[in-house]
Amino acid sequence: MFLKTLHLKQFRNYQEQRVDFVAPKTILVGNNAQGKSNLLEAVELLATLRSHRLARDRDLVRDGEAFGQIHAKLERQAGIIDLSVTLRRQGRRTVALNSEQLRRQLDFLGVLNAVEFSSLDLELVRGAPEQRRHWVDTLLIQLEPVYAHILQQYNQILRQRNAFLKSKGGFPMPVQEKEELAAWDAQLVTIGSRVVRRRARAIERLAPLAAEWHASISDRAEVLQIRYAPNVPFTATDPEGVQQAFLEKIEQRAIAEQHQNTTLVGPHRDEIELTINQTPARQYGSQGQQRTLVLALKLAELKLIEAVVGEPPLLLLDDVLAELDLNRQNQLLEAIQDRFQTLIATTHLAAFDSQWLQASQILSVNAGQIFSDQ
């Protein structure tokens, strides 16, 4: 797939800007806070309807405006597709494909696929488990768009169950309230098991790809292992087996939940463990080694999405390429070649390999305006 045009209106710091992409690689160069990351964020929103910055829609709309819009023209094997997202300061966002507004946002997902690599991704290694859950969930949304709906359902049930525990707090719980809680348990288990099983499958497919990339980048000196550590341990892979394990753990933690007035069991407490040479990655080595790990994860994402959707996704590099040493730059260059359209944000060009510059469209970004340097 190839992103041909991107048109931003009242989005972040852009008043109105159109960009035509004419090369496999596009380098966006400019000082900080000029709009480079905002442009990559717009592409990320088209791919996942999420932002790695976790911003609210009203924060994405330009100051003083009621709404903002992202419009793109994408070339895929099946033909040209128009995509648009309209974000509102007040009210719900809307999405459209080929100028037709979609009733379900789920139907918008999976049209454009992209992998983002930013400096924030170092938090995958050293941050809280929530960071790693968000990462695998964002990947899953692209591999299996229905997962967005499943995750939304789970989070809604979780909020409602927590609200019930808080409002009915205390111990012991009367019989009528126990029955009501059991109904919430059944919903949490049904939907939560779907989340767990999909996360397990995704990590199972991603882990060997990432391990191979990591071994290659580290010249076989380091061994990366990725292990899914669900809050609900399960051995069976069938839905009934997972649900049974889920119910048993809820029963085990029932008293603690009633005392703490919150849900202690479920995929919202999962962990994805990253180890290098059998040592937790957050305790391992330098920032350069942690970048190697994240780079391996991102290359694995590219390969996995390409294998599942049948076309290479876009790669978005947000101010990270110049921070990689020459060996890691060359590994990345060799991996993506011209097969993956790549958009790169940077503050300067000096650290780039000459091969990158020669093969790239170079655009300057200044105060929400973009100019061609060629």
Rank of each mutant, 00 (worst) to 15 (best):
D137P: 02
I217R: 00
P313M: 08
R18D: 13
A351P: 04
Q337S: 11
Q361R: 01
Q355N: 09
E271A: 11
D325G: 14
D325N: 01
P230F: 08
I27P: 11
H134Y: 12
Q156Y: 12
H7A: 05
R220Q: 15
V22Y: 08
K36V: 04
E123A: 15
E248N: 03
G68T: 08
L293P: 08
K249A: 03
L363H: 03
I255N: 03
T347C: 13
V309Y: 00
E306K: 09
V175N: 07
T48A: 14
T342H: 02
V111M: 10
N277L: 05
H348K: 10
D137W: 12
Q69W: 08
Q260A: 14
W184V: 06
R12K: 08
L106T: 15
L3T: 01
Q90S: 07
L317C: 12
E257N: 04
I217L: 11
R92V: 12
A148V: 06
V115M: 11
R103C: 06
R282C: 09
S372H: 13
K4Q: 14
L302V: 07
T262Y: 13
L28M: 06
G68K: 04
A350N: 13
L332F: 13
A281V: 10
A359M: 14
Q355L: 15
I336M: 01
L83K: 04
K249P: 03
V146L: 11
F67Y: 14
R159W: 01
N327G: 06
H268C: 13
S372L: 07
E301N: 05
Q252T: 02
S216A: 14
R62L: 05
I70M: 12
A55V: 10
L304S: 04
L317E: 11
T292G: 07
